[in-house]
Design a protein around this nucleic acid. Structure first.
Lengths: 364, 364
DNA sequence: GTCGGGTGATTAATCGTTTAATCAAACGCC
DNA sequence: GGCGTTTGATTAAACGATTAATCACCCGAC
């Protein structure tokens, strides 16, 4: 239902005060010219009647629904809650509602989801794209949150810098042989993180990348990563591009009897919910999702308000010179938000144990 | 914007075919009387013109927005992605969109969030309540997902039965002294799980409940749970009411050098994303969220379609005999969906190691 | 030949809001 | 006092879809 049922509407207020609906509308929106005294009276009766403006009526007239769409690549991504929460909050402050759409990991479904949102009349949408997908024409302003290196990206965390931060951290702790653990080599976010990581290190430090997805193709999902072997080979630090992988590494190492951080350091990315409570608590990198969401929403809203020609009704022929489906990729002034290192217990200096490892390395 | 911009609307189609808008509307909705041949022609031109019905126009006329609200207690809950995904999917199939609202853990915010949804004109809403909150009058059909023991619950997993399942599992493995690990004693879900757990055991099995929230009030967030001591006291199994707590227990035990599952078993609840990939993989209980979502949405949609008197415009006086804010708590035929035990590696038979533990117990 | 019934389409009203255009009255100014 | 301007409010026309009521027409029946 559009509002409360026989819902107090503008005309009810108008009738009860003996004025016209237009005056009531003007008074409540503060737009036209209404005497201060009348504005006050209208406000009061609106309040006592429990007036709630009908979004449907407003949307129909203004051509704006006041709703934004949020398209997510894979809702089961553990980072999603934070993103959704931040977007919802930022949107609510800006006076917008948030309609969710799940791509379910599939690119086709993503296009379909976008279409559903358009059908529902969203004013704009925030898309967290699936692995370098091209965004289908949406016909409305679109803010993309991915990585700064993605063309069309509106705003995102500076994954590259995040990678540098964690690399410096491990370098300063004395680690010289580091295993990077990634999920899928197709993820631009993960590649950015790894790229940044490597860029912060000089030739004296050896790195290797382990792609879990590739490994699981052989050994099946949930297989061991073989980290104990890696320790034998002299790796003293394991830097995962996600806390999920870090957790996997941490438990695997612990199970193998390798003490963390005494014998090996483990770091993650994203500061997911479990990171502070596992033992040892995970050293990780946090993105300022609230800031990202706010920037994205602000850019989106401003694009909606400025850009849109308000859709003047042109009932006759659509003039052929204007494109039917404009896809406005919104840009923001600040497109990369720095990530913040969170040092906890899972990373530590290359200590006494490292001698063992050197020995192990010799054995190999 | 409501649809694509100068958006093809009913009148455009009507004009291009030389018929009336009403006929077009009838043809597309299949309601009035239109000749089969004309229906076909209208369908065709609607397709070629790329017609997308304006939800705003429809909502205004019918009083139905085609949107459901999803109210969550705390969006950062790791279970949220699954719920949101399932609800969104079920709603999409039923032809509804999903508007999210986050309570941010606060009860006041929850009422406020509900109000925002009502303002946006949702046809109904799904609420996952915060710790036994009373649902504020929403003025529209409401489906509640909590626990079967909560009054007003529409549908949910059978947490009690889930507790029984995991208890039997541990009993059959030979465990006789089990520590239950909960987060907050105020959570009805957790209490149901614990209640069910205990109900499946006889007096020969000793249990104790550890509430993390209470512990953290003393020792600060992220503190150790003191599980090594518990092992010393003879506990051989740790059953957490959430995988998050199970993970915390698992890593703490591993860090303390206690092998899982050889020296102690650990089980969780909910089958969260990391459960299959940690080492050892977590034994847990999974709820059939897809089924729950479908039942909730079905019940909600049927309440919307049957119950609502369609809001006949009554522009004059609201008849005093009908309540202004009816809060329809929707009920479903099947209100409790069974949970399913997922046995992995973190739980095992009480083996050789238990003798150590008996010894440890003697020491205490 | 006219009347009744069915068919296929149109007319027109309506949902609630916004907003350009209009209008009446009051006011200032020469 | 007449004229232009400002102020404060009203009128009326949209927005796009739905739907009850109406209408024209054809066909068979009495």
């Amino acid at each position: 239902m559009a509002t409360a049922r026989p819902g107090p509407n503008l005309s009810r207020i108008a009738a009860s005060l003996g004025v016209s609906v237009a005056t009531v509308s003007n008074a409540l929106s503060g737009k036209g010219r209404v005497s201060a005294e009348l504005v006050e009276r209208i406000r009061a009766t609106a309040a006592t009647l429990g007036y709630v403006p009908s979004q449907a009526g407003r949307a129909l007239r203004t051509g704006r629904s006041g709703v934004l769409g949020l398209v997510l690549p894979d809702i089961s991504n553990p980072l999603f809650p934070q993103i959704a929460q931040a977007i919802e909050h930022a949107a609510a402050i800006a006076g917008y509602g948030v309609l969710i759409a799940d791509s379910r990991g599939d690119v086709g479904t993503q296009t379909e989801a976008i279409h559903r949102l358009v059908e529902r009349g969203v004013d704009g949408m925030v898309i967290v794209p699936r692995r370098g997908t091209r965004i289908a024409d949406a016909g409305c302003p679109v803010a993309v949150i991915d990585t700064p290196s993605t063309p069309g990206n509106t705003v995102s965390a500076d994954h590259w810098q995040g990678g540098r931060e964690i690399a410096s951290h491990l370098r300063n702790l004395g680690h010289r042989k580091i295993l990077l653990i990634g999920g899928s080599s197709a993820s631009s976010v993960q590649n950015d993180r790894i790229g940044g990581f490597k860029s912060a290190l000089d030739a004296t430090i050896k790195t290797e990348v382990l792609w879990i997805e590739k490994l699981e193709e052989q050994d099946g999902p949930g297989c061991l990563l073989g980290l104990a072997d890696k320790v034998q080979q002299g790796f003293t630090a394991f830097a995962a591009v996600s806390d999920l992988h870090a957790l996997r590494a941490l438990t695997e190492l612990q199970r193998a009897g390798i003490a963390v951080p005494d014998s090996a350091s483990v770091t993650g990315f994203d500061d997911l919910i479990w990171s502070p409570v596992v033992t040892p608590a995970l050293t990780t990198i946090r993105m300022d999702i609230a800031a990202i969401a706010e920037i994205a929403i602000t850019a989106l809203v401003s694009a909606i308000q400025n850009g849109e020609p308000i859709k003047k009704g042109r009932p006759r022929e659509a003039s052929a010179d204007e494109p039917l489906h404009v896809n406005r990729l919104v840009t923001a002034e600040k497109s990369r938000v720095p990530m913040q290192l969170v040092v906890r217990q899972s990373s530590g200096p290359l200590g006494l144990a490292s001698t063992n490892l050197s020995a192990g390395e010799l054995l190999t």
